[in-house]
C-alpha cells in the first residue's frame, strides 16, 4: 500500500471498503465438511472450513462438547469420537449467527485487510480482502487439502 494511494484514498476509507467487501461476501459463505485432526496423545479436534465460492478462506474451531463454535486460538480437544452428521446438521444454524465486525487489521505481506467474523461475541474467523482489488483472498493450502479429501 503506497503512501500516494493512501493520500488519494485515506486509510480509514480503505478499511471501510474492505469491511463492506467482507459484508458483501458474508451471505455467500458456507461451512465445508468437518476436518477432524488427531493429536499424538489420542485427542482430536474438529475444524470447519469457511468456504467462499469453492475456496476455503479460513478454518473455524468447532466445539463438539457444546456443539458450538470456539474462538480463534482455542481449538477444543476431546477424547473419543464425534458424530459428523450431527455437526453437519448444526452448520446452517452456526452460519446464520455469523456477522462481520466493524473493524479490520492490515497484513502487509499479503497486502490484505483481515476482517474479523464474529459468532456470538467470539471472533471465529477472518475474511481477508486484497487492498486495491477488493477481492477475497483464499487460503490456497486449506483449499487444496479439502479438494483432496473430496476425491
Amino acid at each position: 500500500m503506497s503512501s500516494s494511494q493512501g493520500e488519494d484514498f485515506p486509510l480509514v476509507d480503505r478499511a471501510a471498503r474492505a469491511i463492506n467487501t467482507a459484508k458483501a461476501a458474508l451471505p455467500y459463505l458456507t461451512l465445508g465438511m468437518p476436518l477432524i485432526s488427531r493429536g499424538p496423545e489420542g485427542s482430536l479436534h474438529v475444524d470447519l472450513p469457511l468456504m467462499y465460492n469453492g475456496f476455503a478462506v479460513d478454518r473455524v474451531h468447532f466445539d463438539p462438547l457444546h456443539m458450538s463454535l470456539s474462538p480463534k486460538g482455542r481449538p477444543v480437544r476431546i477424547y473419543g469420537s464425534v458424530d459428523v452428521s450431527a455437526i453437519i446438521k448444526r452448520v446452517e444454524d452456526l452460519l446464520s449467527g455469523m456477522e462481520v465486525l466493524e473493524g479490520a487489521e492490515y497484513r502487509e505481506p499479503e497486502n490484505a485487510w483481515a476482517v474479523p467474523v464474529v459468532w456470538r461475541k467470539l471472533i471465529v474467523a477472518h475474511i481477508k480482502v486484497r487492498d486495491g482489488s477488493w477481492s477475497i483472498v483464499p487460503d490456497y493450502a486449506l483449499t487444496e487439502e479439502l479438494r483432496r479429501r473430496v476425491v
Binding site: A24, S135, V137, P138
Partner: peptide, 10 residues
C-alpha cells in the same frame, strides 16, 4: 442480483 466480490487470483 448484486454480484458477490471476486476471488483474489494469483
Amino acid at each position: 442480483g448484486e454480484a458477490p466480490p471476486p476471488i483474489s487470483l494469483r
